[in-house]
Design a protein around this nucleic acid. Structure first.
Lengths: 348, 348
DNA sequence: TTGAAAGCGCTAACAC
DNA sequence: GTGTTAGCGCTTTCAA
């Protein structure tokens, strides 16, 4: 391992001070253009690379943002990441991604770790099994900006980016009702999480608004993985539902597949409605109706909001305000929920 | 923003030296258990958190591994990441993920950035459009370990983790031939990349081994996104193929959907074979035959190999050896390529 | 078993 | 425009 070239080496080689070198490499207007050129040239020649660790120590910053996700293996998660990355790249921040695998304990460990890493800010979507939120206190106490997105803690006073899950759940259910479905089963996940609870409330409200009695037997909650989803689906089938509103496209696709393989026609016998607009839904037959969930925009908004907070904090202005941004989602009606005549593939 | 508690604060509070504090917090056997306890207690009480930036500067390491991916939005990528993460978490390394969006230019920029961040090692899968590989030279010159996986640079002398793409391509094609398909079209991507080239060679070899003349008109290469894939599929259709071997499951699903919607039956009229074993393939009808690609194991192996190299390097032993590991992949025969009687869903 | 002190590479306040 | 210098918070050698 060769020795790294430092600004001291450059200073010595050029008979200048490290201060000038540092300024030049930072494009400071304080240094004469000619000097700067000389320094740049020498830096190139000697193979100099800035040591960001030293720089960060000195500047008391990491120029790194922590991203705490519940999972990374969904289309939604990667969309959000893409959005975050777009902004952070532009603003020259790095991101440290930690995911909890839906486990509250791991979320706590990850939070601690990111804190120790001195991230300049944190973007979070809560794990399924998270209960308390004390593990974020160190951030609040140190005034390190935190932005929650999607799965947020309801009563926590801080910045949030969400969609209107209540409205989306309401619209999805209403659409199914308008298509003539009457016994709409709902597969959801932990009602501790705002997203699922709000959608569930939307579902109930839509039912009552259409004078349909809410039947608790038509609702099951599970982890949303393949196995669990199929188990609760079979459970719900005993209640003879004529439609499913499933809070996640992957789970909906799993159900559709299973139902179709047992001879049930979709949407004729059973209507199907997902949530999230995973690409998956556009590749199955019939195409899955869903709620379009703007992951990339959420990520962009969260990152921009966080970086703005970091910047204003640097300027000494403590911003105690806690903005909540609601990103608009839209009902995407495709084939799985529309009863009227439709061209089935393979039967031209 | 409150002031951070440092080891100086602890030293003052306990009338000890910073050296002792540092040792105690590092669980050094040099410090008396009693002293250690006292220090731990005080650290907790005062809310001390280690400043890893300072620690890293001093230790001349970052305890961070850079991961350079071509894309993150596939099941394969997230599997690899999961594998890498499993190992790095255990070994207490952080990972900095950068992706190039298949763009060679961005790959170069990301490589530079990770180098400046002083990552202790690098795990790489090349972008589609990468040509030269000079941008990795700084790592080689500094003796910073680099491990390539999946999309590797053939002639580059360094550690690699791959599957036997030639064999997989051969087996996939042979299977289609055994099912009676004769005009097998192949949709591939940049043949600059070993993975696609090797699969293509396997495809050709299988054909000639079965006394079928290789027809260049049956092969098209594209970016594998939806649009491009459909375009080349329609192009190939003019050659009246009776099967498709497509180098990626997503692209295969897109084609299947399009073909089926135009009334073509799969596998009866056209057989279909993908590559990668994306979950997607198990949720479409018919289920997609494919090559099972062990992403998680690849990630684990790459991470472990890299960390081993980092460790041996620390011990001063420069390891010039360049291991190549081949992870085994398996042919996964499902419905899309099997002509014999099969229960179509919806027709019990 | 503990302490003193040097220094990792950089930045920025202050001086010239 | 440029230089001097004092740290950022930690680890580690050497001495006690």
């Amino acid at each position: 391992m060769e020795k790294q070239v430092t600004i001291y080496d450059l200073a010595r080689a050029l008979n200048l001070s490290t201060a000038t070198i540092s300024r030049a490499l930072d494009d400071s207007p304080l240094v004469k253009p000619k000097t700067r050129e000389k320094i740049r040239a020498m830096a190139d020649k000697m193979g100099y690379r800035q040591n960001l660790i030293a720089s960060n120590l000195r500047k008391q910053q990491s120029r790194t943002i922590g991203v705490l996700l519940h999972e990374v293996n969904s289309y939604f998660s990667t969309s959000v990441l893409a959005g975050i990355e777009k902004i952070t790249t532009r603003e020259k921040y790095d991101i440290l991604i930690a995911h909890s695998g839906e486990d509250g304990e791991r979320e706590i460990a990850n939070t601690r770790n990111l804190f120790n890493k001195r991230v300049d800010g944190l973007i979070v979507s809560l794990a399924m099994s998270t209960v308390a939120t004390d593990h974020f206190n160190p951030f609040f106490e140190q005034g390190i900006p935190v932005v929650f997105f999607d799965r947020v803690a309801k009563k926590m006073p801080c910045n949030k980016i969400v969609i209107d899950n209540f409205k989306a759940g309401y619209e999805a259910t209403t659409h199914l009702l308008q298509q003539g479905y009457r016994r709409i089963a709902h597969i959801t996940a932990s009602l501790q999480r705002n997203v699922y609870e709000d959608r569930f409330r939307g579902y109930k409200k839509a039912l009552t608004d259409h004078h349909i009695r809410f039947d608790p037997l038509l609702v099951e909650s599970c982890s949303l993985n393949r196995e669990d989803t199929l188990a609760v689906m079979h459970q719900l089938l005993k209640q003879k539902p004529d439609a499913f509103f499933i809070t996640n496209d992957f789970a909906a696709a799993v159900c559709m597949d299973e139902l179709q393989r047992s001879g049930i026609r979709i949407p004729e016998d059973i209507g199907m409605m997902g949530f999230n607009n995973d690409i998956l839904g556009s590749l199955i037959n019939p195409r899955l109706s869903t709620i379009d969930y703007p992951g990339t925009r959420m990520g962009e908004t969260a990152a921009q909001m966080l970086i703005d907070k970091i910047k204003t904090k640097k300027n000494g202005k403590a911003t105690a305000e806690h903005k909540s941004v609601i990103i608009s989602s839209t009902l995407l009606i495709r084939e799985s929920s529309v009863k009227k005549a439709r061209q089935r593939r393979g039967h031209k």
